[in-house]
Amino acid sequence: MNCLKAEEQFSAYLEDELDYQAVKAFEAHLSPCESCRREFALFRESLDLLHQLPQIELSTEFDIALQVRLADAQVEPIPFWQRVLRPLHGQTRLALSGIAVLLVMVAGTYLYQRALVKPKSVEITVAPETSRRVPFAEGRRVQWRRQQFPLAVPSREPQSLVNFPESSAFDLQPVRRSQQPQRLEQNYILQTINYTEAPTGGGL
């Protein structure tokens, strides 16, 4: 046993918590080790000092102050809605409660209806390729969606035209830009939402 190990067993030795072998080992170390003997004596003395600390007495106000605090703790906190409704008279309170219930019912029905009315089927119509603008259909909800389709590839004007000899068997004419087929950069899809099949859900 070294000094550090002996120090770890100071409390256990004092409180008689070591077994026989451990006690023998502890005493065998302490008896020749003057430093440990001195430290152990100091350990005991400081513990004696700690145990001699006087008891702190209570002040005379302790009991009264505690009774007041305990009485406060016994009072249950009043819920918010009770604090609001308590000052009102019977009929007013009843009327306000009725209005509140009615409002909740109306709001609930409205939200229920709104959740039910959803488009069931969507009819998709492809717009004419050449036209960029399609007049809105009256009475219908029209939605435009930009699409990047492969057919919408912009064409470039040729840098130079090939000049064939006049005697060529091919009677080719340079293609003018105005004669090129008109191509669109993008197409539009007209979505017409058909409300005829949407469920009404009943009610309002």
Binding site: E7, F10, S11, A12, E39, L42, F43, S46, L47, L50
Partner: peptide, 9 residues
Amino acid sequence: INRARLMLK
């Protein structure tokens, strides 16, 4: 607790 007593010492 033993450590605390050593520190107190």
